[in-house]
Design a binder for these strands. Structure first.
Length: 630
DNA sequence: CTAGGGTTAG
């Protein structure tokens, strides 16, 4: 079922384009195709060849190889073994080449074991060997070992260079240790003999972006512009991507034009970042413009470009359109991959169309080696959200049988599913199971389980679990406290909730709107309406302004406490801020109106859809009374 | 022969 229409432009050229039919895209003789999604459209220009033709020059200029090209770890080990048997032994450079190639395949532990074999065979190492080794430990999140390799440099009288330091900076960043990464960077600047390169800058820029600190990243970019080491495509693309992820697409586009003004040409990665930004905002027209723009520059959309599109369409509920994009990919010889199908599957899951989700999963299974932990987790998540826990559990066992190791995310999904169907025992069993399998629960796992316990009125077990979490070195975030404070309030332990709430700042945590709203609700439940109102005022002062939910909660709280005198003022405040009452609150207000407790002049300001309904109700209760005066 | 940027799951 495809809700997609195609319009083709009238200008016929020799180049071809494709038109949608029930079986796929057909070739037409025109130079562009418009895919219409409701009122939005995509235009794809098909002047490009299906597959970019590789330059024959590079093929002719291939350097001759004395060793076969390594495409997998097995080959690497074989070649390595043969080299070890050669006499005289090949130079360290030859060994470095092997290590480098295996590292590029991301088989970092394999590199380490190869390196250890080199040591046994008394092959010397140089700066290259050790830098590759450091990089491997970095990617394995083993900074301790990386640093001990650094120690080896000095022991062997070798000088770490800009590659070594950049690798170390990257390692710290991968472990989220931005301060230490910046420390190395600053020492390089101060040292004088090993200045950061554009890659070093780019690495640190990425670090700031990872922390969500775009302004620090941009500041560093500006510093580069002033100095000798000018920012390159990667540095710009990193920041553009980060801005897009924060939905700051306009800023990203400004940086994008700035980059091009400096003569730096974008590539497919830059465009994919921008595509991601505009698609996540549902700006399909802008996405179409970008697609056309990139193709016009001979930058061809790749599988990731389309994946971004597929994913965004699915998340917007436009799965049919997403399917269309997938078929278009196939037509254009861009093979959909695991990510493509997983996104599509998630799209069906989101709409509760589990049959179709399962069908996509079956398709992936039939293609072999396409299903991974993420695709299993996605389908499991779909079943969990539909409360189909048996199917979800079956998949968990099935993936394990296939040698796929369920990770923390997989378990979190399942624990959440069990909690939502009230099977707290099963949730706790999974919680133990994951730890037995070496999958460590994270803050999110605890949040899920704590929420489940609180919602199922097991507050004492929740407190126990919270203490267990504190015992491990997991830092509770504000989400954890929101859950606990809410749980305590539901359990009518308002005093305990207050204690937690007012102790937040001493734990270095900032209450957010949700925290305050939960606390206001709790205070109202406890009959402390004036304290609740005080908190509402403080929210404004502390730069955490209340939202419509906060107002609805406090108004309901006041009404439930029969504090009707202050209700009118609160409603006024709410509507002044452009918020409206939800159905529940409106009902309560209408009841009050019926008893002449609030000013009926406020009624038209209530939620519109309930207004009509409740007016008729009002007529039954009210006769010719005069409006309440105050 | 060594270092930095993009898509999927809670």
């Amino acid at each position: 079922m495809l809700k997609m229409m195609i319009r083709t432009t009238t200008a016929a050229t020799s180049s071809s384009c494709y038109c949608w039919s029930s079986r796929g895209m057909n070739c037409l003789h025109s130079n562009s195709t418009f895919l219409v999604f409701g009122n939005n459209y995509f235009a794809f220009f098909h002047s490009q060849p299906s597959k970019p033709i590789k330059s024959t020059r590079t093929q002719l200029e291939q350097p001759k190889r004395d060793l076969p090209k390594i495409t997998n770890v097995e080959d690497a080990f074989n070649v390595f073994d043969r080299m070890l048997q050669m006499r005289p032994l090949p130079s360290v450079v030859r060994f470095n080449k092997i290590l480098g190639q295996v590292a590029k395949l991301k088989h970092y532990s394999a590199v380490i074991s190869l390196y250890n074999q080199m040591g046994v065979s008394r092959i010397g190492h140089d700066v290259y060997t050790l830098t590759i080794l450091i990089n491997c430990y970095c990617h394995l999140n083993q900074m301790g070992f990386s640093l001990s390799v650094l120690g080896k440099f000095f022991k062997l009288g070798l000088e770490p260079d800009v590659f070594t330091f950049t690798t170390l900076i990257n390692g710290f960043l991968l472990e989220n240790r931005v301060a230490e990464a910046a420390g190395i960077f600053n020492k390089m600047i101060a040292g004088g003999n090993c200045q950061p390169s554009v890659v070093t800058y780019g690495t640190l820029v990425k670090g700031f972006c990872m922390k969500g600190n775009n302004s620090a990243a941009i500041q560093l970019l500006r510093k580069m512009e002033e100095g000798a080491c000018k920012p390159d495509l990667v540095v710009y693309s990193t920041i553009i991507d980060s801005l897009c992820k924060d939905t700051l697409v306009d800023d990203a586009l400004n940086l994008f034009s700035e980059m091009m003004c400096k003569g730096i040409a974008p590539d497919v990665i830059t465009y994919n970042a921008l595509m991601n930004g505009v698609c996540k905002l549902g700006e399909w027209k802008e996405a179409a413009r970008l697609l056309n723009e990139m193709v016009s520059k001979n930058i061809f959309p790749d599988v990731r470009t389309f994946n971004v599109l597929v994913d965004a369409l699915c998340k917007e509920g436009m799965v049919g359109e997403a399917e269309g994009v997938v078929e278009m990919m196939i037509e254009r010889d861009i093979e959909p991959n695991t990510v493509t199908y997983t996104s599509l599957m998630d799209g069906f899951c989101l709409r509760g169309e589990m049959g179709k989700a399962k069908k996509i999963f079956g398709l992936m299974l039939s293609k072999g080696s396409m299903v991974n932990v993420v695709s299993y987790s996605t389908l499991i998540n779909g079943y969990c959200k539909r409360k189909m826990m048996d199917e979800a559990m079956t998949l968990l066992r099935e993936m394990s049988c296939k040698g796929l190791v369920p990770n923390t995310v997989t378990y979190n999904t399942l624990v959440d599913g069990c909690c939502k169907v009230g099977k707290l025992g099963d949730a706790q069993k999974l919680f133990s199971e994951m730890q037995a399998c070496g999958q460590l629960p994270n803050v999110r796992t605890y949040a899920i389980l704590l929420d489940g316990l609180c919602k199922n009125r097991q507050i004492s077990t929740a407190i126990q679990l919270f203490k267990e979490m504190e015992g491990k070195k997991l830092d509770a975030d504000i989400v954890i406290y929101n859950i606990l404070i809410e749980g305590l309030c539901i359990a009518k332990k308002i005093e305990f909730a207050r204690e937690l709430f007012f102790g937040l700042s001493s734990r270095g945590l900032q209450p957010n709107v949700r925290t305050c709203t939960i606390m206001i609700n709790g205070l109202c439940i406890g009959g402390r309406t004036s304290e609740a109102e005080k908190l509402l005022t403080e929210m404004e002062e502390k730069g955490c302004p209340p939202n419509d939910c906060t107002y609805n909660i406090i108004i309901r709280g006041f009404i439930n406490n029969n504090e009707t005198v202050r209700v009118t003022g609160l409603i006024q405040q709410m509507v002044e801020k452009g918020f409206s009452a939800d159905a529940w609150t409106t009902e309560l207000i209408v009841e009050l109106l019926a008893k002449d407790k609030v000013d009926p002049a406020l009624l038209p300001l209530m939620q519109k859809e309930n207004y009509e309904l409740n007016l008729s109700q009002l007529k039954l209760n009210r006769s010719s009374d005069h409006p309440n005066k105050h």
